[in-house]
Nucleic acid binder design. Structure first.
Length: 423
DNA sequence: ACCCGCACGAACACCACACTACGCT
DNA sequence: CTAGCGTAGTGTGGTGTTCGTGCGG
Protein backbone atom coordinates (compact mmCIF):
# COMPACT_ATOMS: atom_id res chain seq x y z
CA UNK A 1 0.00 0.00 0.00
CA UNK A 2 1.42 3.30 -0.93
CA UNK A 3 1.61 6.48 1.00
CA UNK A 4 -1.44 8.44 1.67
CA UNK A 5 -2.07 11.70 0.00
CA UNK A 6 -0.22 14.51 1.69
CA UNK A 7 -3.19 16.76 1.23
CA UNK A 8 -6.25 14.76 2.22
CA UNK A 9 -4.44 12.04 4.06
CA UNK A 10 -7.09 9.58 3.01
CA UNK A 11 -6.57 8.47 -0.51
CA UNK A 12 -3.54 6.73 -1.80
CA UNK A 13 -1.15 9.15 -3.37
CA UNK A 14 -0.48 8.60 -7.04
CA UNK A 15 1.39 11.61 -8.30
CA UNK A 16 4.33 13.51 -6.99
CA UNK A 17 4.47 17.26 -7.24
CA UNK A 18 8.05 18.36 -7.22
CA UNK A 19 7.52 22.10 -6.62
CA UNK A 20 5.39 21.21 -3.63
CA UNK A 21 7.43 18.17 -2.71
CA UNK A 22 4.15 16.47 -2.04
CA UNK A 23 2.55 13.17 -2.82
CA UNK A 24 -1.02 13.63 -3.87
CA UNK A 25 -3.96 11.56 -4.86
CA UNK A 26 -5.45 12.40 -8.21
CA UNK A 27 -8.36 14.23 -6.76
CA UNK A 28 -6.22 16.44 -4.57
CA UNK A 29 -3.75 16.90 -7.37
CA UNK A 30 -6.53 18.20 -9.49
CA UNK A 31 -7.94 20.39 -6.79
CA UNK A 32 -4.65 21.80 -5.61
CA UNK A 33 -3.29 22.52 -9.02
CA UNK A 34 -6.40 24.04 -10.40
CA UNK A 35 -6.23 26.79 -7.81
CA UNK A 36 -4.40 29.26 -9.96
CA UNK A 37 -2.19 29.67 -12.96
CA UNK A 38 0.97 29.30 -10.97
CA UNK A 39 -0.02 26.09 -9.34
CA UNK A 40 -0.97 24.74 -12.71
CA UNK A 41 2.62 25.08 -13.73
CA UNK A 42 3.72 22.58 -11.16
CA UNK A 43 5.15 19.59 -12.85
CA UNK A 44 4.03 16.24 -11.54
CA UNK A 45 4.74 12.69 -12.26
CA UNK A 46 3.80 9.30 -10.98
CA UNK A 47 5.05 8.05 -7.67
CA UNK A 48 7.42 5.16 -7.58
CA UNK A 49 5.38 2.03 -7.18
CA UNK A 50 8.09 0.35 -5.18
CA UNK A 51 9.24 2.80 -2.56
CA UNK A 52 6.10 4.90 -2.78
CA UNK A 53 8.00 7.97 -1.88
CA UNK A 54 10.01 9.13 -4.84
CA UNK A 55 8.88 10.42 -8.19
CA UNK A 56 8.98 7.73 -10.81
CA UNK A 57 11.20 8.18 -13.78
CA UNK A 58 10.69 4.99 -15.68
CA UNK A 59 8.03 2.41 -16.20
CA UNK A 60 9.02 -1.20 -16.20
CA UNK A 61 6.88 -2.83 -18.81
CA UNK A 62 7.67 -6.30 -17.61
CA UNK A 63 6.76 -5.67 -14.03
CA UNK A 64 4.12 -3.13 -14.85
CA UNK A 65 5.38 -0.79 -12.22
CA UNK A 66 6.63 2.76 -12.16
CA UNK A 67 10.02 3.16 -10.62
CA UNK A 68 12.09 5.95 -9.28
CA UNK A 69 15.74 6.17 -10.11
CA UNK A 70 16.90 4.31 -7.07
CA UNK A 71 14.40 1.52 -7.33
CA UNK A 72 15.01 1.26 -11.01
CA UNK A 73 18.68 1.05 -10.39
CA UNK A 74 18.29 -1.47 -7.64
CA UNK A 75 15.92 -3.59 -9.60
CA UNK A 76 17.41 -3.35 -13.02
CA UNK A 77 20.95 -2.50 -12.40
CA UNK A 78 20.44 0.74 -14.17
CA UNK A 79 19.99 -0.69 -17.59
CA UNK A 80 17.43 -2.61 -19.46
CA UNK A 81 20.06 -4.96 -20.69
CA UNK A 82 21.02 -5.92 -17.19
CA UNK A 83 17.59 -7.11 -16.23
CA UNK A 84 16.10 -7.83 -19.58
CA UNK A 85 13.19 -5.69 -18.65
CA UNK A 86 11.93 -3.21 -21.09
CA UNK A 87 11.44 0.18 -19.57
CA UNK A 88 10.03 3.42 -20.72
CA UNK A 89 10.48 6.88 -19.46
CA UNK A 90 7.84 8.62 -17.47
CA UNK A 91 7.83 12.30 -17.74
CA UNK A 92 6.00 15.00 -15.99
CA UNK A 93 2.87 16.88 -16.74
CA UNK A 94 1.43 20.13 -15.63
CA UNK A 95 -1.93 21.75 -15.72
CA UNK A 96 -5.06 20.05 -14.56
CA UNK A 97 -5.66 17.01 -16.67
CA UNK A 98 -8.78 15.03 -16.34
CA UNK A 99 -8.71 11.37 -15.56
CA UNK A 100 -9.53 10.64 -19.15
CA UNK A 101 -6.52 12.58 -20.27
CA UNK A 102 -4.29 10.92 -17.76
CA UNK A 103 -5.55 7.56 -18.79
CA UNK A 104 -4.96 8.33 -22.39
CA UNK A 105 -1.51 9.60 -21.85
CA UNK A 106 -0.39 7.23 -19.19
CA UNK A 107 -1.76 4.27 -20.96
CA UNK A 108 -0.16 1.93 -18.50
CA UNK A 109 -2.29 3.33 -15.72
CA UNK A 110 -5.75 3.01 -17.04
CA UNK A 111 -7.48 2.77 -13.75
CA UNK A 112 -7.51 6.39 -12.87
CA UNK A 113 -10.52 7.25 -10.82
CA UNK A 114 -12.85 9.67 -12.48
CA UNK A 115 -12.05 13.28 -12.02
CA UNK A 116 -14.16 16.22 -12.69
CA UNK A 117 -12.65 19.18 -14.37
CA UNK A 118 -13.07 22.68 -13.20
CA UNK A 119 -16.49 22.78 -14.65
CA UNK A 120 -17.45 19.65 -12.96
CA UNK A 121 -17.45 17.74 -16.16
CA UNK A 122 -15.65 14.67 -17.12
CA UNK A 123 -13.42 14.58 -20.04
CA UNK A 124 -10.74 16.75 -21.34
CA UNK A 125 -10.90 19.22 -18.56
CA UNK A 126 -8.05 21.60 -18.27
CA UNK A 127 -5.19 20.62 -20.37
CA UNK A 128 -3.44 23.91 -20.19
CA UNK A 129 -3.88 25.12 -23.65
CA UNK A 130 -3.77 28.80 -23.86
CA UNK A 131 -4.25 30.79 -26.93
CA UNK A 132 -1.77 33.45 -27.87
CA UNK A 133 1.21 31.94 -26.31
CA UNK A 134 3.26 28.87 -26.74
CA UNK A 135 4.85 27.11 -23.92
CA UNK A 136 6.24 23.83 -22.98
CA UNK A 137 4.49 21.64 -20.55
CA UNK A 138 5.66 23.73 -17.68
CA UNK A 139 4.16 26.86 -18.93
CA UNK A 140 7.27 28.64 -19.99
CA UNK A 141 6.41 30.93 -22.79
CA UNK A 142 7.61 30.02 -26.18
CA UNK A 143 8.44 32.62 -28.66
CA UNK A 144 5.83 32.78 -31.25
CA UNK A 145 2.19 33.05 -31.79
CA UNK A 146 0.22 29.97 -31.31
CA UNK A 147 -1.12 27.98 -28.49
CA UNK A 148 0.23 26.88 -25.25
CA UNK A 149 0.25 23.17 -25.02
CA UNK A 150 0.92 21.61 -21.72
CA UNK A 151 1.95 18.26 -22.88
CA UNK A 152 1.56 15.21 -20.85
CA UNK A 153 4.46 13.03 -21.27
CA UNK A 154 3.97 9.42 -20.74
CA UNK A 155 5.73 6.20 -20.58
CA UNK A 156 4.20 3.58 -22.73
CA UNK A 157 2.95 6.03 -25.23
CA UNK A 158 4.87 6.75 -28.28
CA UNK A 159 5.89 10.32 -28.29
CA UNK A 160 5.04 10.76 -31.87
CA UNK A 161 1.62 9.41 -31.16
CA UNK A 162 1.19 11.97 -28.49
CA UNK A 163 2.36 14.67 -30.78
CA UNK A 164 0.00 13.51 -33.42
CA UNK A 165 -2.79 13.31 -30.96
CA UNK A 166 -2.17 16.78 -29.76
CA UNK A 167 -1.76 18.17 -33.18
CA UNK A 168 -4.98 16.54 -34.15
CA UNK A 169 -6.59 17.71 -31.04
CA UNK A 170 -5.53 21.30 -31.28
CA UNK A 171 -6.60 21.44 -34.84
CA UNK A 172 -4.90 22.13 -38.05
CA UNK A 173 -4.02 25.74 -37.52
CA UNK A 174 -0.74 26.51 -39.08
CA UNK A 175 0.06 28.80 -36.24
CA UNK A 176 -0.36 26.18 -33.66
CA UNK A 177 2.91 25.19 -32.23
CA UNK A 178 3.42 22.18 -30.09
CA UNK A 179 6.18 22.87 -27.71
CA UNK A 180 7.86 19.58 -27.42
CA UNK A 181 10.80 19.23 -25.22
CA UNK A 182 13.60 16.95 -26.13
CA UNK A 183 14.55 15.28 -22.96
CA UNK A 184 18.17 14.74 -23.60
CA UNK A 185 20.70 14.22 -26.20
CA UNK A 186 19.31 10.98 -27.39
CA UNK A 187 16.42 12.80 -28.85
CA UNK A 188 18.69 15.02 -30.71
CA UNK A 189 21.07 12.58 -32.15
CA UNK A 190 18.86 9.88 -33.30
CA UNK A 191 16.15 7.44 -32.57
CA UNK A 192 16.14 5.82 -29.25
CA UNK A 193 13.79 3.41 -27.82
CA UNK A 194 11.06 3.17 -30.31
CA UNK A 195 8.49 4.10 -27.79
CA UNK A 196 10.40 6.43 -25.62
CA UNK A 197 8.24 9.39 -24.88
CA UNK A 198 9.95 12.66 -25.28
CA UNK A 199 7.56 15.18 -24.05
CA UNK A 200 9.40 16.79 -21.32
CA UNK A 201 9.07 19.34 -18.70
CA UNK A 202 11.47 22.16 -18.55
CA UNK A 203 10.58 23.00 -15.05
CA UNK A 204 11.60 19.60 -14.02
CA UNK A 205 15.12 20.24 -14.96
CA UNK A 206 14.93 23.79 -13.97
CA UNK A 207 14.53 23.05 -10.38
CA UNK A 208 15.51 19.51 -9.93
CA UNK A 209 18.26 18.65 -12.24
CA UNK A 210 20.94 19.72 -9.89
CA UNK A 211 19.54 18.07 -6.88
CA UNK A 212 19.84 14.40 -7.38
CA UNK A 213 22.61 13.51 -9.64
CA UNK A 214 26.15 13.78 -8.60
CA UNK A 215 27.21 13.19 -12.10
CA UNK A 216 25.93 16.53 -13.12
CA UNK A 217 28.97 18.02 -11.62
CA UNK A 218 30.76 16.67 -14.62
CA UNK A 219 29.43 19.76 -16.20
CA UNK A 220 31.98 21.85 -14.52
CA UNK A 221 34.59 23.74 -16.37
CA UNK A 222 37.00 20.92 -16.29
CA UNK A 223 34.94 19.07 -18.77
CA UNK A 224 33.03 21.75 -20.54
CA UNK A 225 34.45 25.11 -21.10
CA UNK A 226 31.71 27.42 -20.07
CA UNK A 227 33.68 30.56 -20.32
CA UNK A 228 32.62 31.28 -23.78
CA UNK A 229 34.58 34.26 -24.82
CA UNK A 230 32.21 35.34 -27.45
CA UNK A 231 28.78 34.83 -28.64
CA UNK A 232 30.18 33.63 -31.87
CA UNK A 233 32.17 31.04 -30.08
CA UNK A 234 29.10 29.46 -28.72
CA UNK A 235 26.50 30.06 -31.31
CA UNK A 236 28.24 31.38 -34.29
CA UNK A 237 26.39 34.63 -34.31
CA UNK A 238 27.12 37.99 -32.90
CA UNK A 239 25.14 38.94 -29.85
CA UNK A 240 25.15 42.43 -31.13
CA UNK A 241 22.71 41.31 -33.66
CA UNK A 242 20.47 39.50 -31.36
CA UNK A 243 17.66 41.87 -31.85
CA UNK A 244 17.73 41.48 -35.52
CA UNK A 245 18.69 37.95 -34.91
CA UNK A 246 15.39 37.25 -33.33
CA UNK A 247 13.19 39.81 -34.80
CA UNK A 248 14.10 39.57 -38.42
CA UNK A 249 15.23 36.09 -38.95
CA UNK A 250 12.42 34.53 -37.12
CA UNK A 251 12.54 32.13 -34.32
CA UNK A 252 12.59 29.06 -36.45
CA UNK A 253 15.56 30.19 -38.40
CA UNK A 254 17.17 31.19 -35.19
CA UNK A 255 16.79 27.74 -33.84
CA UNK A 256 18.19 26.16 -36.87
CA UNK A 257 21.20 28.34 -36.80
CA UNK A 258 21.88 28.05 -33.14
CA UNK A 259 21.22 24.40 -32.87
CA UNK A 260 23.76 23.76 -35.49
CA UNK A 261 26.12 26.06 -33.73
CA UNK A 262 25.52 24.42 -30.42
CA UNK A 263 26.08 21.17 -32.11
CA UNK A 264 29.58 22.20 -32.82
CA UNK A 265 30.27 23.76 -29.48
CA UNK A 266 29.21 21.23 -26.99
CA UNK A 267 32.24 19.05 -27.11
CA UNK A 268 30.58 16.31 -28.96
CA UNK A 269 27.33 16.46 -27.19
CA UNK A 270 25.58 16.97 -30.43
CA UNK A 271 27.51 14.43 -32.25
CA UNK A 272 25.02 13.67 -34.87
CA UNK A 273 22.31 15.42 -36.70
CA UNK A 274 18.80 14.78 -35.66
CA UNK A 275 17.57 11.96 -37.69
CA UNK A 276 14.16 13.26 -38.31
CA UNK A 277 12.41 16.50 -38.73
CA UNK A 278 10.44 15.74 -35.66
CA UNK A 279 13.55 15.64 -33.62
CA UNK A 280 14.72 18.86 -35.09
CA UNK A 281 11.45 20.36 -34.14
CA UNK A 282 11.87 19.04 -30.69
CA UNK A 283 15.24 20.60 -30.48
CA UNK A 284 13.87 23.84 -31.67
CA UNK A 285 11.08 23.71 -29.24
CA UNK A 286 13.42 22.97 -26.44
CA UNK A 287 15.58 25.76 -27.47
CA UNK A 288 12.70 28.07 -27.62
CA UNK A 289 11.93 27.25 -24.08
CA UNK A 290 15.45 27.79 -22.99
CA UNK A 291 15.53 31.16 -24.56
CA UNK A 292 12.15 32.20 -23.45
CA UNK A 293 12.48 31.06 -19.93
CA UNK A 294 14.09 34.27 -18.87
CA UNK A 295 11.42 36.24 -20.52
CA UNK A 296 13.59 37.48 -23.27
CA UNK A 297 11.27 36.16 -25.84
CA UNK A 298 8.16 36.84 -23.93
CA UNK A 299 8.78 40.51 -23.90
CA UNK A 300 8.73 41.95 -27.35
CA UNK A 301 10.40 45.07 -26.16
CA UNK A 302 13.59 43.42 -25.18
CA UNK A 303 14.58 42.18 -28.52
CA UNK A 304 16.32 45.37 -29.35
CA UNK A 305 17.91 45.80 -26.00
CA UNK A 306 21.45 44.61 -26.20
CA UNK A 307 21.68 44.45 -22.47
CA UNK A 308 19.32 41.61 -22.48
CA UNK A 309 21.53 39.66 -24.71
CA UNK A 310 23.42 38.47 -21.72
CA UNK A 311 20.38 36.76 -20.42
CA UNK A 312 19.77 35.20 -23.73
CA UNK A 313 23.31 34.12 -23.89
CA UNK A 314 23.12 32.59 -20.49
CA UNK A 315 20.01 30.85 -21.45
CA UNK A 316 21.64 29.34 -24.43
CA UNK A 317 24.61 28.32 -22.50
CA UNK A 318 22.42 26.46 -20.13
CA UNK A 319 20.62 24.98 -22.99
CA UNK A 320 23.74 23.63 -24.45
CA UNK A 321 24.59 22.10 -21.15
CA UNK A 322 21.34 20.39 -20.81
CA UNK A 323 22.02 18.19 -23.75
CA UNK A 324 25.37 16.97 -22.78
CA UNK A 325 25.58 13.29 -22.71
CA UNK A 326 25.43 12.86 -19.05
CA UNK A 327 25.08 9.59 -17.45
CA UNK A 328 23.90 9.53 -13.99
CA UNK A 329 23.13 7.64 -11.00
CA UNK A 330 20.59 9.81 -9.41
CA UNK A 331 21.18 9.85 -5.77
CA UNK A 332 18.98 12.32 -4.10
CA UNK A 333 20.41 15.50 -2.80
CA UNK A 334 23.46 15.83 -4.89
CA UNK A 335 22.18 18.12 -7.52
CA UNK A 336 22.75 20.79 -5.02
CA UNK A 337 26.40 20.40 -5.58
CA UNK A 338 25.97 21.53 -9.07
CA UNK A 339 26.58 25.17 -9.51
CA UNK A 340 24.83 25.28 -12.78
CA UNK A 341 22.01 27.64 -13.16
CA UNK A 342 18.74 26.01 -12.49
CA UNK A 343 16.88 28.36 -14.66
CA UNK A 344 17.06 26.98 -18.06
CA UNK A 345 17.72 23.37 -18.08
CA UNK A 346 15.39 21.30 -20.06
CA UNK A 347 14.51 17.73 -20.51
CA UNK A 348 13.39 14.74 -18.66
CA UNK A 349 13.05 14.48 -14.96
CA UNK A 350 16.44 14.40 -13.34
CA UNK A 351 15.89 11.11 -11.66
CA UNK A 352 15.77 9.52 -15.01
CA UNK A 353 19.20 8.66 -16.21
CA UNK A 354 19.94 11.08 -18.95
CA UNK A 355 22.19 10.12 -21.73
CA UNK A 356 22.57 9.51 -25.37
CA UNK A 357 20.34 6.53 -25.36
CA UNK A 358 17.95 7.23 -22.60
CA UNK A 359 16.24 4.13 -21.40
CA UNK A 360 18.45 1.89 -23.40
CA UNK A 361 21.63 3.48 -22.31
CA UNK A 362 24.41 0.96 -22.64
CA UNK A 363 25.68 -0.43 -19.41
CA UNK A 364 29.26 -0.12 -20.53
CA UNK A 365 28.89 3.53 -21.28
CA UNK A 366 27.21 4.14 -18.04
CA UNK A 367 29.77 2.19 -16.12
CA UNK A 368 32.57 4.10 -17.70
CA UNK A 369 30.83 7.31 -16.95
CA UNK A 370 30.30 6.29 -13.37
CA UNK A 371 33.94 5.36 -13.07
CA UNK A 372 34.98 8.67 -14.50
CA UNK A 373 32.68 10.42 -12.18
CA UNK A 374 33.92 8.62 -9.12
CA UNK A 375 37.50 9.23 -10.03
CA UNK A 376 36.79 12.83 -10.54
CA UNK A 377 34.93 13.10 -7.30
CA UNK A 378 37.83 11.50 -5.55
CA UNK A 379 40.23 14.05 -6.86
CA UNK A 380 37.87 16.94 -6.51
CA UNK A 381 39.19 19.74 -4.39
CA UNK A 382 37.35 22.65 -2.95
CA UNK A 383 40.46 24.41 -1.84
CA UNK A 384 40.77 28.04 -2.49
CA UNK A 385 42.57 28.83 -5.65
CA UNK A 386 44.97 31.71 -5.57
CA UNK A 387 44.91 33.57 -8.82
CA UNK A 388 47.43 36.20 -7.94
CA UNK A 389 50.28 35.07 -5.76
CA UNK A 390 51.50 38.61 -5.44
CA UNK A 391 48.26 39.69 -3.87
CA UNK A 392 48.34 36.80 -1.52
CA UNK A 393 51.85 37.72 -0.47
CA UNK A 394 50.71 41.23 0.17
CA UNK A 395 47.68 40.13 2.14
CA UNK A 396 49.81 37.77 4.16
CA UNK A 397 51.94 40.58 5.47
CA UNK A 398 49.22 43.15 5.84
CA UNK A 399 48.42 44.32 9.33
CA UNK A 400 44.92 43.88 10.63
CA UNK A 401 42.48 44.85 13.30
CA UNK A 402 40.08 42.07 14.10
CA UNK A 403 40.86 40.48 10.82
CA UNK A 404 40.29 43.59 8.81
CA UNK A 405 43.01 45.31 6.92
CA UNK A 406 44.07 48.61 8.35
CA UNK A 407 45.78 51.55 6.77
CA UNK A 408 49.51 51.62 6.88
CA UNK A 409 50.59 53.41 9.98
CA UNK A 410 47.34 52.89 11.85
CA UNK A 411 47.25 51.00 15.07
CA UNK A 412 46.87 47.30 14.58
CA UNK A 413 46.30 44.30 16.75
CA UNK A 414 47.73 41.68 14.48
CA UNK A 415 50.93 41.72 12.53
CA UNK A 416 51.45 38.56 10.53
CA UNK A 417 55.14 39.30 10.31
CA UNK A 418 55.91 39.33 14.00
CA UNK A 419 52.94 37.23 15.07
CA UNK A 420 52.52 39.41 18.09
CA UNK A 421 50.13 42.05 19.08
CA UNK A 422 51.10 45.62 19.18
CA UNK A 423 49.49 48.59 20.84
C1' DA B 1 3.69 15.92 18.45
C1' DC B 2 5.02 20.44 18.90
C1' DC B 3 7.64 24.41 20.46
C1' DC B 4 11.59 26.73 22.22
C1' DG B 5 16.35 27.62 23.22
C1' DC B 6 20.94 26.44 22.50
C1' DA B 7 25.05 24.86 20.00
C1' DC B 8 27.39 24.38 15.95
C1' DG B 9 28.93 25.09 11.31
C1' DA B 10 28.73 27.41 6.89
C1' DA B 11 28.49 31.47 4.41
C1' DC B 12 29.24 36.05 4.04
C1' DA B 13 30.91 40.94 4.94
C1' DC B 14 34.45 43.88 6.09
C1' DC B 15 38.84 46.18 5.64
C1' DA B 16 43.36 48.46 2.74
C1' DC B 17 45.88 48.49 -1.09
C1' DA B 18 48.82 46.40 -4.74
C1' DC B 19 47.80 45.08 -8.98
C1' DT B 20 45.36 44.65 -13.44
C1' DA B 21 42.72 46.18 -17.30
C1' DC B 22 41.20 49.66 -19.99
C1' DG B 23 40.66 54.17 -22.13
C1' DC B 24 42.65 58.38 -23.34
C1' DT B 25 46.34 61.51 -24.77
C1' DC C 1 51.44 52.46 -33.84
C1' DT C 2 53.54 52.78 -29.34
C1' DA C 3 54.39 54.65 -24.83
C1' DG C 4 52.82 56.93 -20.85
C1' DC C 5 49.34 58.25 -17.71
C1' DG C 6 44.99 58.15 -15.08
C1' DT C 7 41.14 55.69 -13.35
C1' DA C 8 38.08 52.03 -12.04
C1' DG C 9 37.79 47.52 -10.60
C1' DT C 10 39.68 43.18 -8.55
C1' DG C 11 41.62 40.02 -5.24
C1' DT C 12 43.85 38.82 -1.06
C1' DG C 13 43.29 36.76 4.45
C1' DG C 14 41.66 36.85 9.40
C1' DT C 15 37.90 37.87 12.12
C1' DG C 16 33.14 39.01 13.29
C1' DT C 17 28.43 38.54 12.10
C1' DT C 18 24.46 36.36 10.26
C1' DC C 19 21.84 32.54 9.03
C1' DG C 20 20.40 27.79 8.80
C1' DT C 21 20.24 23.29 10.83
C1' DG C 22 20.13 19.80 14.32
C1' DC C 23 19.31 18.37 18.90
C1' DG C 24 17.63 18.10 23.55
C1' DG C 25 14.43 19.61 27.08
Amino acid sequence: MGLLCDFCGEQRSMVYCRPDAACLCLACDHNVHSANALSQRHSRTLICGRCNSQPAGVRCIEENVSLCQNCDWNGHGGSASASGHKRKAINCYSGCPSSAELSRIWSFALDFPPLADSNGEQGLGLISINENSVSNCCGSPAPENGRTIDLYSAGGVNDLDIIDNFNTWIGSSSNSAVALMPCNADQLVGPVDSATPKLCCTETRNHEICKDDELYEDFNVDDVDLTFESYEELFGASHNHSGQFIGDVGIDDLFEMDISAANSNCQGTFTAEASSSGQVESMQAAYSNAVSADSVMSNPGVNADPNRCFSTRQARSSFSLSFSGLTGECSGGDYQDCGMSSTLVVGEPPWYPPGPESSSFPTASRDSAVIRYKEKKKTRKFEKKIRYASRKARADVRRRVKGRFVKAGDAYDYDPLCQSRSC
